[in-house]
Design a binder for these strands. Structure first.
Lengths: 154, 154
DNA sequence: CATTATTTGTTGCAATTGCAACCTTTTTCT
DNA sequence: AGAAAAAGGTTGCAATTGCAACAAATAATG
C-alpha cells in the first residue's frame, strides 16, 4: 500500500517519543499542583480522581482505566483510606472485590485540584486551536491507542 | 473571552490525562522491544538514541531534549560506557563537558531497535491518519505545553 | 585579579515503581 | 461435587527515579 521511502527517524520527528515528552511535562505539572494542594503523590491523585468521579469503582476498575498496575493501585488505595479520603466496602456478592468511594474530604480535595488542573489546561488552549478541533484531535489520539494496543500485550 | 459553561471533567475526556495514558503505553511497548533486543532499560535506550542519532552531544544536551533529569542521564551514560556502547571524550576547551558518541556496537544496536520501533509505529498509524497529520497534531500539543510552561517552573 | 556565580556532572539517600509470588474467593470443567 | 483455573488484591524485594547536596571548571563581576 505504501512504498514511501523510510524517513530518517530522529527523536524530534518520532511522534511516539514526542508524545512521551509531552506526557512527562503534563505529569510534572500535575504533580506540582497536587503537591501544592494536598499531601498526595501522582498515583494517589489518579486513584482518588478515578474513585471520586465515579464512586463504586473497584481496584480492578481503577487499574483498567489507568496507566498503573494493580500493585500501585492497591497501595494508593490503602494510603487514601488511611488518610480518610476514601472508604472501601466489601462487595456482598463477591467477597474478593470492594467498591471504593471518596469521603466528603476526598471529594473536596478532588474537586479543588481538578478545577485547578482544568483551568490551567483550558487556558493553555485559548487562542491556539478551537475546542472542537481539539476534541477531534483527541479522538484520533484515542484511536491510535486502540491501534497500538495489540502490540502492547504480547 | 469565553463564557462557555465549564464542562464536567472526567478522566476519559480530559486530554492531558489521555496523553499520559497513551505515552505510558508507548513507553511500555518501547521497553518490551528494547529488552528483547538489548540489555538496556528505557533511560539507557533514550540516552543511546540521543547520542547515536547525533554524535557529539554532551550529557547536558541529552538532558535538554529528553524527559530525564541530569541524574538519570549521568547514570545511563556511565552504564552505556561500561557496556561498550558509548564513549566519552572530555572537551579540550571546557574540561567540565564531554562529548559523547556511540561505538560501532552502540550504533548497531540503536539502528536495529529504532527500525523495529519505527516499523511498529508506522503500521499502527496506517489507515487512521497520515503521519504528516499526526505530526501536525503533535506540534499543536507541544505548543500547548509551551503555553503551560510558565505554570511549570514556579 | 580576586571573589562570587554558573555551568557540568556525580553521588547518597529516600520515595516510587515493577515484577513475581502468594492468599482468597469465584468460576469453570469433568 | 471436587479439582483445576481464573480473578481480585496484597506483600516482599530489587530496580529505577527524584531531590538535594557536592565537587570541579569556567564565566562574570567589582
Amino acid at each position: 500500500m505504501s512504498d514511501t521511502k523510510p524517513p530518517h527517524i530522529t527523536l524530534d520527528n518520532f511522534w511516539p517519543y514526542q508524545a512521551v515528552v509531552l506526557a512527562d511535562q503534563i505529569s510534572r505539572y500535575t504533580l506540582s499542583v497536587v503537591r501544592a494542594e494536598a499531601d498526595l503523590n501522582l498515583s494517589q491523585w489518579r486513584v482518588l480522581a478515578a474513585i471520586a468521579e465515579k464512586p463504586g469503582r473497584t481496584a480492578a476498575n481503577v487499574t483498567a482505566i489507568t496507566p498503573m498496575d494493580k500493585t500501585i493501585v492497591s497501595r494508593a488505595v490503602s494510603s487514601l483510606i488511611e488518610a480518610g479520603l476514601v472508604i472501601k466496602a466489601v462487595d456482598s456478592g463477591d467477597k474478593r472485590r470492594s467498591s471504593l468511594s471518596a469521603t466528603a474530604s476526598g471529594q473536596s480535595i478532588y474537586a479543588n485540584i481538578a478545577a485547578k488542573l482544568n483551568e490551567a489546561m483550558i487556558s493553555s488552549l485559548s487562542g491556539t486551536i478551537s475546542p472542537e478541533d481539539f476534541t477531534e484531535m483527541l479522538k484520533v489520539f484515542s484511536r491510535k491507542m486502540v491501534d497500538i494496543a495489540p502490540y502492547l500485550k504480547p
